[in-house]
Each structure stands twice: as structure tokens, then as C-alpha cells.
Design a protein around this nucleic acid. Sequence first.
DNA 1: TCAGATGATAAGCGCGCGCATATGATCTAT
DNA 2: ATAGATCATATGCGCGCGCTTATCATCTGA
Lengths: 141, 141
Amino acid sequence: MSAEDERPDLAAMLHPLVRELIAVELPILADHGVSMWGYSVLTALDGTPVRTQAALAEAIGADKTRIIATLDELQDAGLITRIPDPDDRRVRLLSITPKGTRIRRAVRSDIRTREDQLLSALPAADRRAFIRILRTLHERG
Amino acid sequence: MSAEDERPDLAAMLHPLVRELIAVELPILADHGVSMWGYSVLTALDGTPVRTQAALAEAIGADKTRIIATLDELQDAGLITRIPDPDDRRVRLLSITPKGTRIRRAVRSDIRTREDQLLSALPAADRRAFIRILRTLHERG
DNA sequence: TCAGATGATAAGCGCGCGCATATGATCTAT
DNA sequence: ATAGATCATATGCGCGCGCTTATCATCTGA
């Protein structure tokens, strides 16, 4: 039985880490007046407008009915636009506004700063490797 | 602006991964007749008996009132024992039974198999590095 | 001895969320 | 023209869980 066998489960290590990250992010999001789902929507829309709300929900792992209130809030706050598609009037074309982009990037920057603090326990090479491997796992699926 | 700056947030990458791991684990846990919290308790007790229930809850990030039902179930199933401490009769000494140990290890083995499948997208060196770095972050925190 | 701390337990509140269902508008294919 | 699919939306159920409060037993220190 190698030492590897005695490691905690992946979820046992990852879950607390995620909880910690979320705890760090919530106050930042509150400072900028957006919810976690709202930020997630802004992130998905920044750079890539999305044609349907269902596709957006799918892309960010949200529920397509639950996301509607989030979109309402973002629209009311002027962070996104929801224009009926002239080619298919069932569809709302979603895009982020300049104000939405500004807020999204400000939030991301604040989050990045805190993430760096969290990762500062690691040697630089490990930090880079961790991010790189995570991106691989993330893109894979 | 380096490519690094355009990476997704850590939580955006880690959260889906955790969700996926949990989705994989739930059927395994159901097969062995334990809940996620139950498995977490068994894992904490295997090898290290714990003196108080509050300490256990704290150790696994659970709520000290919510954990009681879990302990009741585990005890009813014969997977743990809860004996009043003769030196302080407020306290219940917690330990895992042989049956509990057997189940915990069977679950862990099944989970490990599925984790390996999940990580098989990575080159072996990255797999090792990922685990090693995760353990560092986990122990630090 | 007695007040206050500590441990286990019960019970309840409120939130977020996954999920199912229903409805109306609109499009598409026959 | 019409049936069926698709999209946005509203609504409601139920669960898990973090949190609070209260109760009872027991221990500890002044």
C-alpha cells in the first residue's frame, strides 16, 4: 500500500477548497452588487453573446427557469440587454453592456487578487502547474 | 495581458469538477447504504477515534446539530459506536466498528476507481502533480 | 454549594436550488 | 391550415443545509 493510496478522496480535498473560494467571492460580489449567478452570466456573455437563454443556462450549469430572475436583475441594473430576435421572435438575444463588462472585469480582478493570496502557499511552479492542469480538466468536460 | 489573465476563475473550474465528483459518488454511496455525511464521518473515524461529536462535526465541516441524525443512522446500522465517556458522562466517545471500516474502505475503493477514470485524461506526471498540489492546499487550510 | 461553562439533542426558520408542470407565443414541417 | 416543436416565463414542491434557540445532563471552578 503506497502513500498515494492513503490520500483523501478528491472531493474531500476539492470541496473545502471550493467552499473557501465561494466564501471569499461572496463579499466581493456583494460589493459590486451582483449575485454569483449574475456574475456567472456576465462572464459567459463577455466576449461571446449568446442566442438563447436556455443555451446560456446550459453553458453555465444553471436551471433554465431559475435563471430568469437573474436575467431580470441584470437587465434592470443595465448590465445586459435582452432584445427579441427579429428573425425568431421567441428568442431573446443576450448581450452584455459596457457597464456590465466594466463590472464583470472589476469583480474578476478582485477575485483574482484573492485567489493569488490563496495560492501563495504554493511554490510558483506548482501554482502554474495547478492552473494549467485545472484548465485541462475544465475544458475536457 | 498574458494568456494566464484570461483563464476562468478558480471556482469556475473547480465547482463543476466537484459537482461531477459528487454525482459520481452518490450512486456508489447509495450502493453501500451510506449517505455522503455518513461516509465523511466514517472516513474521519477510521484510524482516529474522536472524543466529542462537536469536534467531529468541526473536523468534517458539518453542523453539530445536523450531524446527530447521521450518527444515529450509522449507529443503528452498526457502523459506529457511541459510548458515554466514563470520565465525563456528557461526552460520547465515537469509534468505527469493523463493519464500518469494511464499508468505508469498500466505498473508498469504488470512488478511487472512478476518480482514476476522471483523471485519465491527464498525463501521468500531471496526475501525480495535481494530487500532490491538492494535498498541499488541503493540509494548509 | 452553586453559577456558569460545556456537551448532546430537539425543533424550527429561511434560503437556494434542482426539478416538474403549465401556459402562451411563435416557428416549422407536413 | 394545422399539429407539433421550441422558447421564455411563472409557479410550486421538496430537499439539504446553515443557523438559531431551547432543554437537559453533567462537569468545573470560585
